[in-house]
């Protein structure tokens, strides 16, 4: 893990990061290419299989266009930003997301034609569901790391907790935006108020937005670690309570697409969904690793600045 490297002179750092970026792009490209290859092999038996048809299908769908163009644009922007020495974390995050979408897209187009007859609206689940799963994974990790920090008092746990909070928040945002977009197409409205699952996801988002804000606003590093750990635990304990409370006290009926479970009996769909979960959690873990290294650097900087400020005030430094 590269968080043990110290902040070196600008030249060294740029080279180091550029190498890492190239490495990543290379690995990413290899993964994509091999998945395209697997997808081609899988479709070999289909009598109507023509690669060009599938490429055209993806391109003809507005979402497919968005993903393909978006990936190219973001790669370009990331390159320019990196050359300019800017922070490219957000761009990388988007790139990874778009890459994961494209992968899922490729796999989802390999589904049997009978399922595709339902329409393309089910495709959202290969993105929405994995994002939701990884969001749960990282919020759980956040709670575990928070407890570990309170028990062991090691700043590393705090850094892990903070990072998983940010990654989980990103995943949660993606869950909400994709779900809302899907709802506008399928249910003809962007938001439904009587659905407990929708509401509890929104509240989860708000709660963890509070978590991210809390760590942004606390200056004192010692206090920040403790308070964020405390809030991370409260927030996690609260989530199931919120979910069941809304379920018990909601006004209308549950409208979340549970009908999908009928389709899930199909092996292809189940496979694709859980493959998506593995891919997503994997990619979010890569993000987690990067962010963790970055948080380590930032912590050291922040703590020394804090110590200097306290010394200027004439305080006793522990």
């Amino acid at each position: 893990m590269s968080n043990s490297t110290t902040v070196a002179a600008g030249h060294t750092r740029t080279t180091h990061e550029a190498r890492r970026s190239r490495q990543f792009l290379f690995r990413f490209g290899v993964v994509i290419l091999s998945l395209i290859g697997i997808r081609m092999l899988m479709a070999w038996d289909e009598s109507t299989w023509i690669p060009w048809t599938y490429a055209k299908m993806t391109w003809e769908h507005p979402a497919g266009q968005l993903y393909l163009v978006g990936t190219v644009v973001l790669l370009g922007l990331g390159f320019v930003f990196r050359r300019a020495g800017r922070d490219t974390f957000g761009l990388h995050a988007l790139q990874v997301m778009l890459g994961a979408v494209s992968l899922n897209w490729l796999i989802a187009t390999a589904l049997p034609l009978s399922i595709k007859m339902i329409g393309s609206s089910y495709l959202i689940f290969f993105y929405h569901f994995p994002a939701a799963m990884s969001c749960f994974v990282f919020f759980t990790l956040l709670m575990v790391f928070s407890i570990a920090y309170l028990v062991q008092d090691d700043p590393l746990w705090d850094r892990c907790a903070r990072t998983s909070g940010q990654i989980g928040f990103l995943a949660c945002t993606i869950v909400l935006t994709t779900g809302s977009t899907w709802a506008s197409a399928a249910w003809n409205s962007w938001w439904v108020w009587d659905d407990p699952r929708l509401m509890s996801a929104a509240i989860m988002w708000l709660t963890y937005a509070g978590y991210v804000m809390l760590q942004m606003q606390l200056d004192d590093p010692y206090k920040r670690r403790r308070f964020c750990a405390v809030f991370g635990i409260i927030a996690f304990l609260n989530l199931p309570i919120v979910h069941y409370a809304i379920q018990w006290f909601s006004q209308g009926e549950v409208s979340h697409p549970m009908k999908f479970s009928d389709m899930a009996s199909n092996d292809w769909i189940t496979y694709t969904r859980w493959f998506g979960v593995i891919v997503f959690v994997g990619f979010y873990s890569i993000l987690f690793r990067w962010r963790l290294a970055r948080e380590g650097t930032r912590d050291r900087l922040h703590e020394s600045l804090w110590a200097v400020r306290r010394l200027e005030e004439g305080a006793h430094i522990r």
Partner: peptide, 16 residues
């Protein structure tokens, strides 16, 4: 910030 942190946590009690 207090309100931002508190209100989402209050939803179960509030609903009940």
């Amino acid at each position: 910030l207090l309100r931002i942190l508190l209100f989402p946590l209050m939803i179960p009690v509030f609903a009940a």
